[in-house]
Nucleic acid binder design. Structure first.
Lengths: 197, 197
DNA sequence: ATTCATACTTGACAATGTAAAGATTCAATG
DNA sequence: CATTGAATCTTTACATTGTCAAGTATGAAT
């Protein structure tokens, strides 16, 4: 049996999970390697056995958050018709960040994500998931292919903007936002109608 | 004549302007008070005569950027019909951040902005400007008042999301983005038509 | 000319990221 | 079982940073 008083066991995982936790509680800027190491019960230089520097830790944390995000988005599609699925996924997109506002800043600030728009959004799994789902719908309704990029961009910008605004609006009214986003992404309003009535 | 070897003259302004410059070049996280002080030719503690701490400097910088942003948005409306003005302002909104991507992160991360959505967007001048312009249009076309908030939110989320995505897409293709946004905000597409053709 | 508030400097300290060197443990080998 | 080597952790050290305290220089008012 390994000696846990010296060897932590799985410091790498602990750092990531405690790191995610601390980011969501106090924000990215309040997270220091030393505090995090202390919270994991190890000395301040121990993390360097697992991450070559702070940025690499942050990259690992980002991956962890991204995985959670992808899971949430995927689950929002289960048992859904593609059209309802799109509405649900948009809602899940916004609510994921409403519930974890610090994730939003952390994720989209590090600029590790680079979207290539000469083709279609790529380079960040949640976006690709999103894009694929919209594509499915457009395909089903025989939407003209040359307009896909434009439509995907529109929908995605809308949802992403809503998330950003929802966070600025504060997180005290999550339920209210869920309703609002669900409403704004409803078939009749967003796909069937237009913004001017 | 004042002695400029000891007294800087206008250190407060210099700090803000050099600060803005450095943020845009290297990002917010790379900006240290000491480096900034050195760049202004003063000792590391000199800034404390003008700002009680780093956060207060950042607040001043944010105000400076916000003023520039408001100017750009206002100018985009000059001589425009309200409808074309909306298109132009949306374009200006996105392009301002495409040209200064670090401003975007800096501004929307500090969370100093809090939008109140029980009423209408307020608490941040550019948003209010934006909201007022949309309101003018809705008023002119006798748009039902109970749908204003929804419509303003939609348009604003779309534009804000576009800005966010444009930044992720990189700033190498500013011209391309200007066209794209102009197109997406065209009357026929965004107000007259809908996303599904 | 004196006084004084303002703007600046110097020196200090704690927190942080990181590097180097050494200690401890685990696993594989003989 | 004893030895060895790699992996993991600790300790020590150092540069950078934000901030404070004490002191110095300047210009304006008296």
């Amino acid at each position: 049996m390994p000696d846990m008083s010296y060897h932590h066991g799985d410091l790498r995982t602990a750092m990531i999970e405690k790191g995610v936790e601390m980011i969501n509680e106090q924000g990215v800027n309040a997270l220091s390697l030393r505090k995090l190491a202390a919270a994991c019960g190890v000395s301040h230089a121990a993390p360097y056995s697992h991450f070559s520097n702070k940025d690499e830790l942050f990259t690992a944390i980002q991956k962890h958050i991204t995985d959670k995000f992808v899971t949430v988005l995927s689950e929002s599609l289960i048992g859904m018709d593609t059209l309802d699925g799109l509405q649900n996924m948009g809602c899940a997109y916004v609510m994921f960040f409403v519930h974890n506002p610090q994730y939003f800043h952390f994720t989209f600030n590090r600029m590790g994500i680079h979207i290539d728009f000469t083709e279609i959004p790529s380079g960040y799994e949640p976006f690709e998931l999103y894009r694929n789902n919209i594509s499915q719908i457009l395909s089903k309704i025989n939407y003209p292919q040359e307009l896909w990029i434009k439509t995907i961009l529109t929908h995605w910008a809308f949802v992403h903007g809503l998330a950003s605004i929802a966070i600025m609006n504060g997180i005290n009214n999550a339920g209210e936002w869920e309703e609002r986003v669900h409403d704004l992404l409803s078939k009749s309003y967003f796909l069937g109608g237009n913004q001017c009535g």
